[in-house]
Amino acid sequence: MGEEYILQVKDLHTSFFTDSGEVKAVNGVTFNLAPGKILGIVGESGSGKSVTAYSIMQILASTGRIVSGEVLYKGQDITKFDKKQMKGFRGKCCSIIFQDPMTSLNPVFTIGNQLMEAILLHTDKDKKQAKDRAIEMLELVGVNEPQKRIKQYPHELSGGMRQRVMIAMALACEPDILIADEPTTALDVTIQAQILELMQELQKKLGMAIIMVTHDLGVIADMCDEIIVMYGGRVCERGTAEDIFYRPAHEYTKGLLRSIPKADGSKERLVPIAGTPINLLNMPKGCAFCARCDEAMKICLTEVPPQVQMPDGHYSCCWLAYKQLYEAQKGESAR
């Protein structure tokens, strides 16, 4: 079991227990990640994409906790790991890059110091070797003059350079999985292009699996093997990049694709998704998206939609897709 996949997330539920009640941020998320593949998680703010990533790393805020579900790393359930095992898991097996390179580096330690910390912790290298490794890593991520950089502090570097340092730090111990939580959102487009290029190059070179969390459909389109679309803490749709962009089977995905301005210069009116994102404190009984869905049916209000399987592992959690599939099957059997 678990041979084929490096990471399996099964029916993950993560909640935050706040003064105003339980916020179900992740509400039954299931996915598998094969070694060396890139998985994209897209969704709006509050859709639970970052919390899913944090749940895997178990770095949730103090009010948050995994309520149920399993996260299997090479067949082992890491939600059952104790603190020490978890320390070994983070950095060595799986590491994370955060959105904001401005705040995710410690301002009072040098770049070299922060890079070496992880290396010293996870490997039996001595200080000298760790330093060499740190310089090697900085070279790998394209930081110029690494000898000089390791003595510098984060404020002396630009945003793009800091994000490179973050990537170097994450990859220093050669993890099997890299989680990138909006790695380019805080960067300019030209710098974003540099970082995305770098990530793809490193992925080819080192062969780790990447979970790419983002709200930008453009970023994941040409990069991910597989994409999951999240809304209201649930997975709406899962499929290959082509499934999601050319054959979207969930009304939310369709809406998202309609609402981005097309790059073909057409000036036609955009079709926005009406309404506002849902309040996780007050989740509807049925489909999370039904209040904003143009095609909502009666059943959407009361029942959580099932997973509707389509060819090649593409599935959608939508009653409409269910209905269409059911009708198609009925038509076939009548014939």
Binding site: V189, Q192, A193, G218, A221, E242, F245, L257, I260
Partner: peptide, 12 residues
């Protein structure tokens, strides 16, 4: 600048 815009289309 324009070439760096990520296009939401996997075949682009």
């Amino acid at each position: 600048l324009f070439s760096a815009i990520p296009i939401p289309d996997p075949k682009a």
